[in-house]
Design a protein around this nucleic acid. Structure first.
Lengths: 239, 239
DNA sequence: GGAATGCTTCGGGCGTCGCCGAAGCATTCT
DNA sequence: AGAATGCTTCGGCGACGCCCGAAGCATTCC
């Protein structure tokens, strides 16, 4: 029974610029060291240490000691979803300024990134569009559904679908998936267990690789081919 | 393209105890005056005025002047969803303390409340359970689906389903709905357009009425009968 | 063993922000 | 018109917390 006080505490933890940067950097689900987080937040290590102590005692990040390093990662997926939803509001409220491309780093993020466990950015929405066009998924703002051909398709390209099959609804055996509104594209992409399965497999197979230090991902030539020939992805062209 | 700075700003706005209380009070979607919000936040009117000014200039709340009153409400549904997701994290992180029923007000909230546009609390999950048991909806943690019998059922009890029908997926014509994890019950209930339609109709028909000043709702005798006889709701007994 | 690295705690400076009392408009009631 | 209500702005006080420099452990490298 969370009280408003606990609500405010969590929001306040996320509300500091330095901590927000750190949490952001952890959004891809990986574990980073304190020094790396200090760098992305633009503060000294001792300041970062204090922030990380607060985040971990609050339970937002999980710490794991390994030698002289301390690896931090988001404690639960719910925290990533919370941050997504805050980004959501930020995108809504942001002034409709034109494409002020701030830098190459932001451009890469808009191009393709991970959203904790699934793809977002132009790549994410293009994948979702392709899946919809091929009749593999159906998507509304409320929810999504993986069709039977869609399930077969995922199996055919090598994705282990046992995890998805296990999550089917009791009655009709449908596999459902979660839509996620993309803050950079302002369109929906695939999240939930389906989006996570695609992302995981794509990274394992080397279709995409993580960019060092950021949430951005790069599509490899192999991935470009797979996405075009198998997913029938049209719109996306890596720039 | 929201930056981390805007992210932090929004989180910080929600991170102050007084503002969090106010936002909480607005979670049912209604518009409240500045004085009412000052009272629920436990601050003086002039302090509340400052907070509300910040919230409105940031775009989180929308203000409407009416005579000498200024009515405040959440600017968009996305803000309510954001707060839900923060509550979500708070519930996860909250120590698993026993049922420390703080007071009658909290008890009423746990019993039945609105979650911006749909029902939550024991009533919310009981309704969802009944709909699932009757085969009207299927629900996973990722998403939900309204079955054809379910759509007919909603029409039969008088709900205007044109809004739902309009939101069907292009291909198979399914009506999808959004699950929402209940922080008090730790179970899923119905949200999205389906949950909103049920909640709206229930309030219009007098099956439930809003409790003054809080997000709690009361089930009327008429509502108790309807929920039992038509929805086949089992578990819920108003206490 | 000595040096370097990663991280933490301590102490103090400083800015920000939340809070309220007092006062000032605007609207409404009688 | 005068009083009451709703809300805001102004001024000032107090505290919380963000930040860094300095110093202290722990681990690892040479």
């Amino acid at each position: 029974m969370p009280s408003e006080a606990q609500f405010a505490e969590i929001a306040a933890l996320a509300g500091d610029p330095a901590r927000a940067s750190m949490l952001h950097a952890l959004m891809d689900g990986r574990a980073l060291t304190a020094t790396e987080l200090a760098r992305v937040a633009g503060v000294t290590p001792q300041t970062a240490s204090g922030h990380l102590a607060r985040l971990s005692t609050a339970g937002l990040v999980h710490v794991e000691q390994q030698g002289r390093h301390r690896y931090h990662r988001l404690a639960t997926p719910a925290i990533a979803r919370m941050m997504e939803s805050i980004m959501q509001v930020a995108a809504e409220l942001a002034p409709p300024r034109k494409h002020f491309t701030v830098g190459p780093r932001d451009a890469a993020l808009r191009e393709a990134r991970t959203c904790y466990d699934h793809f977002a950015g132009r790549l994410g929405v293009a994948l979702a569009d392709a899946m919809i066009a091929e009749g593999h998924v159906e998507l509304t703002s409320d929810a999504g559904i993986l069709t039977d051909p869609g399930l077969n398709f995922l199996g055919a390209i090598g994705i282990d679908t046992t995890g998805l099959v296990a999550r089917r609804t009791k009655r009709s055996g449908r596999v459902l998936c979660r839509p996620c509104l993309d803050w950079s594209e302002r369109r929906h992409h695939l999240a939930g267990s389906v989006g996570a399965a695609i992302c995981r497999h794509s990274l394992e197979q080397g279709w995409t690789i993580r960019s060092a230090g950021t949430r951005a991902v790069l599509v490899t030539p192999k991935g470009t081919r797979i996405f075009r020939e198998h997913f029938k992805m049209q719109i996306y062209q890596p720039s």
